[in-house]
Amino acid sequence: MARVVVDVMLKPEILDPQGQAIAQALPRLGFGGVADVRAGKHFVLDVDDDVSEQAVREIADTLLANPVIEDFEVRAE
């Protein structure tokens, strides 16, 4: 078994209302100095050893991310 991580983020040009809401909440909580927040999704996959990185990229591209609005990164842990 290998552990593979897929991080999915909205593309930079896509507005992220969730990240904005977090950024706006921070000063109210007394945390200063945070200029911007982008929120994304973090997937942890336990895969058989014979599953290639290419296969995981296909999983990310097909289901975990919507390539129209999101970018993803795949890395082994």
């Binding site: 909205l10 896509i14 507005l15 209302p17 969730q18 129209v68 609005i69």
Partner: peptide
């Protein structure tokens, strides 16, 4: 239909959340 790519673009969270 957007997820299926039968239609272009995507629908995301409302701006006002």
């Amino acid at each position: 239909l957007c997820e299926t790519h039968l239609l272009p673009g995507a629908l995301v969270r409302n701006v006002a959340q």
